[in-house]
């Protein structure tokens, strides 16, 4: 019964966002992607398919993160400010069901975004003579997982701070999560045991987004061991699960005034 309500909330969340025409922006991003890809390949010698793939995955990643960031920050705070949340949780709906429904609904929008831009990217790559291999699909899947993690981060922060701070902190965490690996390779860091410890500790607490970035491997290497992919996939799922638990815990106890 509760599952039904969660799915009902997710369906209407999806519908509400869908009808807000946000996906029209995705369509324009797709058209822009095609044009930029075409122009870029004209200036590239020998590897137009790589350029198409690079642009495509880059755009896909950026648009997914933007959707997570800007729709995610208002997912709960807007509901509370505008009191729409009262209409839902005044009914026999547990709070966790409400928040799960909202998240699933938004991830449905995210899925549509990823599918549209992925198809465009793969079409352009194929058209320019490139191959569609399994690693490209892993990369697309990881972009989806990265957007899920960022969504949970921004929703969690929106329960603790105002919208502007939530977006700023999320951006900082996104940036840190991508540069942390390279930072550990800097010789100054390696020579400083305290900094090494701090950066190692970071992995246990804050999101390591770099684990979900396969773009370089897709474009230059075309292969990765399955254990690496499975390990990072498991990390993303477990970390998202952990974030979800924290979000549910905070929302259960939040005063909705």
């Amino acid at each position: 019964m509760t599952l039904n309500k969660t799915l009902t909330i997710s369906y209407y969340t999806f519908k509400e966002i869908w009808k807000s025409k946000i996906l029209l922006n995705v369509f324009f991003v797709g058209i822009g992607l095609m044009i930029v890809t075409y122009v870029a390949t004209e200036f590239t010698y020998g590897v137009p398919e790589r350029v198409a793939l690079d642009f495509g995955l880059g755009m896909l990643s950026l648009s997914s993160l933007a959707i997570s960031l800007f729709l995610g920050v208002g997912l709960l705070s807007k509901e509370i400010e505008s009191r729409t949340v009262y209409m839902v949780i005044a009914r026999p709906v547990p709070r966790y069901s409400f928040i799960l429904g909202k998240l699933i609904g938004l991830m449905g929008i995210q899925a549509v975004n990823v599918i549209i831009l992925s198809l465009m990217t793969m079409t352009a790559t194929k058209f320019l003579g490139g191959e569609i291999n399994g690693l490209i699909l892993w990369a697309i899947g990881f972009i989806f997982l990265e957007s899920l993690m960022l969504l949970l981060v921004v929703v969690l922060l929106s329960l603790l701070a105002n919208n502007i701070l939530s977006v700023l902190f999320s951006l900082v965490l996104l940036l840190l999560g991508h540069v942390i690996k390279d930072t550990q390779e800097i010789s100054f860091v390696k020579s400083n045991p305290l900094v090494v410890k701090i950066l190692e500790a970071y992995h246990f607490v804050l999101p390591a987004f770099y684990k979900l970035n396969l773009k370089d491997f897709v474009i230059y290497k075309n292969e990765l061991p399955l254990s690496y992919l499975a390990g990072n996939f498991t990390y993303a799922i477990l970390y998202s699960g952990f974030l979800l638990l924290v979000v549910v815990f905070l929302f259960q106890r939040k005063n909705l005034d």
Binding site: Y12, K15, E16, I17, K19, S20, S82, R83, T84, Y86, M87, A90
Partner: peptide
């Protein structure tokens, strides 16, 4: 229970 909040604001696009 049926509850109607003050100045209800609904999902605008539905």
């Amino acid at each position: 229970i049926g509850f109607l909040p003050e100045r209800p604001y609904f999902y605008q696009n539905l």
